[in-house]
């Protein structure tokens, strides 16, 4: 790192650290909550989950701007700086084994786990980039990009059921993220000067425990539900929903075509369930 670069970081250290703190809540943490609650709609039905995903994908091509502008870039900012900050500390919970010191150490440990987990999770489900050559030649051959938004429950279920290790990794990763977020709320309140006295901080800690417990329950039940989803049946329901949406004009063929290009290799596994249904226009044009 050149000296000009390091002095820029040094001069704006306060602002950068505060932005790091802020991005943990907005948009990264807030997005995570939306994500976890959306996942949990699978507990109701395949339909509800699929409809929630349709809702997200109503943005069409503009979704990539939201994805990068409000999710990936702030997340990368928070994660990369976080890794640098972890290396600037010397955790000592065995010498000074106070609750808050353990939480300090866990905040860093869960941050590292979350970093690795999200890195892999985004690849596993999303594929990192949606350029077709990347999906075809890199992401899918390596077991990534398994989630297909217009076949949401069936592809997510398949991804979760591919090997028994996957739900275990998701459980560890998601719990790390939830702890990191809930405890981060508590430290953020101190950092920004919201709760100052020990009494107020104690109350705020109960708030964090509440948020963490709720999100933990929500996310673990969603993981459990995805491991139980009947992917074949879910696929049939999704095809039906897709047809009806297309008929009623909620989605257009262009969107479907666009998606099916992305999704066609995962859809091949679905082809048995597709085969006995009416031919889809997107299949013909997409492949």
């Amino acid at each position: 790192m050149s000296s000009a670069q390091s002095s820029f970081l040094a001069r704006h250290e306060f602002l950068i650290r505060r932005l790091h703190s802020l991005t943990g809540l907005l948009p990264v943490g807030a997005y995570m909550c939306v994500h976890l609650f959306t996942n949990a709609t699978i507990l109701d039905s395949v339909q509800l989950f699929q409809n929630a995903i349709y809702g997200i994908h109503t943005l069409g091509d503009a979704l990539i701007l939201v994805e990068w502008g409000f999710i990936f870039l702030p997340l990368i900012f928070h994660a990369v700086l976080g890794m640098a900050y972890v290396s600037g500390g010397l955790p000592n919970p065995t010498a000074y084994s106070y609750g808050s010191n353990w939480r300090y150490t866990l905040q860093r440990a869960t941050g590292i786990i979350a970093f690795l987990f999200i890195f892999w999770h985004v690849f596993h489900m999303h594929g990192w980039f949606h350029a077709e050559w990347w999906l075809e030649n890199v992401a899918r051959p390596l077991g990534g990009a398994m989630f297909s938004p217009y076949n949401a429950a069936s592809t997510a279920g398949k991804a979760m059921q591919s090997t028994p290790i996957v739900p275990i990794l998701y459980t560890i990763g998601v719990l790390a993220c939830v702890f990191h977020f809930a405890n981060g709320l508590w430290t953020m309140g101190i950092t920004w000067g919201l709760w100052t006295t020990p009494q107020a901080q104690k109350r705020a800690n109960f708030l964090s425990i509440g948020v963490g417990t709720l999100l933990g329950i929500v996310s673990l039940s969603a993981i459990a539900a995805f491991t139980q989803v009947d992917t074949k049946k879910a696929g049939e329901i999704e095809e039906h929903l897709q047809e009806k949406r297309l008929e009623s004009g909620f989605i257009n063929e262009k969107q479907l075509h666009h998606k099916s290009v992305d999704d066609h290799s995962t859809d091949q596994e679905n082809s048995t369930s597709k085969g006995d249904e009416t031919p889809k226009p997107q299949n013909g044009s997409g492949t």
Binding site: Y85, G89, N92, Y96, Y98, S100, N101, R103, Y104, T105, Q107, W186, T187, I190, T191, W192, G193, L194, W195, T196, T197, P198, Q201
Partner: peptide, 26 residues
């Protein structure tokens, strides 16, 4: 500050250091 709050726990004069940190943070 990483909010480990060891400071207030070890302070021999029992100074409310974490309250000071939060106030200074504000």
């Amino acid at each position: 500050c990483g909010n480990a709050q060891n400071c207030v726990a070890v302070c021999p004069k029992e100074i409310p250091l974490t309250t000071s940190i939060a106030k200074a943070g504000r």
